[in-house]
Nucleic acid binder design. Structure first.
Lengths: 231, 231
DNA sequence: CCGGCTTTGTGAACGCGTGCACGAGTGTCT
DNA sequence: AGACACTCGTGCACGCGTTCACAAAGCCGG
């Protein structure tokens, strides 16, 4: 019997870092680097070396003590673990500003996520071509998902339409959603949702900026003045 | 002397949720809801009620037992804490697909992050207008940052140009960076960086999808077969 | 073949964030 | 006024993730 991998659950935090390691390792492979230490990989990934080793240890004991990891082998293992051994076609809902940019991005297909379709409700957008894909009516969503075996949907609609888009995706059979709309989506527990929210990111940065200027005021000026960073 | 707020450090996890609460509260205010319970807010934000209360407690004791929180007051407090009492102009580096989408997005300025400028290296892009802003040469970056008092920079360049873009931003005086390029940026510790990486998000979803199909194979088929989701 | 050098893999301690559970206020109704 | 229903604020325990530190393991030179 073949060696059945333990297949222990990989912590989410680790899963989120694996793609980063993968990208770096692929780059190193292009540079004809064939071995790499956890130290070096950690440096390139901007994390702690122990973390790298622990992360990689979830995949199995693929390093060699005293030597490091074989780059190409690691690439293979990570790709396998992330399910990147085959393509995952995605469907994009919403052909607005963002949907267009995503479809035209290109980096999508290259990285194993070809755009199987783009749909919208707006008749004026239907038929236009984005990144080699013709925009279709949202009623064709289910048909696209089924014929192209799509598991991943991208919500790139205005906020007000996002929940409906998500529901259509779920009904069509999609089990993972990447949500760009600034809305909390309600979906069955079995559906995996990840969100990318520009406004949230900027506001987090704003928080830190504000804190920074606060601190300056505090140390430079007299204490106790009412807070205002307006200057 | 005015009541100096404790100003204890707010956990990052909480900071990341405050913008979500803020958006929901603003919506509720528009709906003329003037009071809200932690339970209701939790439901709308898709989180636990205890978490909401703990998060809000970092801002101060602004709720009323037996009643809830006054929506408009909470909105004010969160905005203040996040530093959203004034605008934070941002500068976008890279006028490619993504940079254009971001500049044209509109939701930027509305939410307090007006686009102070867009720069690129490509002469063919300079002078074109995106979302009301003319694209300028990257050499003008420092000038823009200084004259418009920009603290936040957005990196929307191809991967190979991202590190250089970041360094230029830092040199120009930017202290927070939102990075869309799939690259780990190296910047002084004093600079805050947040990244938005499409490929990473999709690969995380891929991991879960793969895991899902794996599990199905495992329970449906016989055990111990080598793993391959190629079917 | 041995000793020294390198680097992995992981046990253990620590710290942060989450969620429970409950005391403490607040409003309402009789 | 008193009883009751409601909801906040928070102490506490738990679990996950990070980091340290070191033994185990492999390589190399003499």
């Amino acid at each position: 019997m073949p060696v059945e991998r333990p297949r222990r659950r990989i912590p989410e935090a680790t899963v989120a870092r694996l793609p980063v390691y993968l990208r770096i390792l692929a780059e190193q492979a292009d540079l004809e680097v064939d071995r790499i230490s956890s130290d070096r990989l950690a440096e390139l990934a901007g994390v702690n070396a122990a973390k790298v080793r622990k992360d990689l240890s979830y995949l199995g004991s693929y390093g060699t003590r005293g030597v490091g990891y074989e780059v190409s082998f690691l690439v293979y293992q990570i790709r396998r673990e992330l399910g990147l051994t085959h393509d995952w076609p995605v469907v994009i809902v919403g052909a607005g500003n963002l949907g267009q940019a995503l479809a035209g991005y290109g980096g999508f297909g290259e990285r194993g996520f070809p755009v199987a379709g783009v749909v919208d409700v707006d008749p004026s957008k239907i038929g236009t071509v984005l990144g080699g894909v013709r925009v279709r009516h949202i009623d064709e969503l289910a048909q696209i998902v089924q014929s192209r075996r799509v598991n991943i949907g991208v919500v790139a609609t205005p906020p007000a339409a996002a929940q409906d888009a998500a529901e259509r995706l779920v009904r069509a059979g999609v089990t993972s959603i990447l949500n760009f709309a600034p809305v909390v989506l309600t979906v069955p527990r079995s559906v995996e949702v990840r969100k990318v929210d520009l406004a949230v990111e900027l506001q987090i940065l704003s928080y830190h900026e504000q804190r920074r200027s606060d601190g300056q005021l505090r140390s430079v000026g007299a204490a106790g003045i009412s807070r205002s960073a307006s200057a």
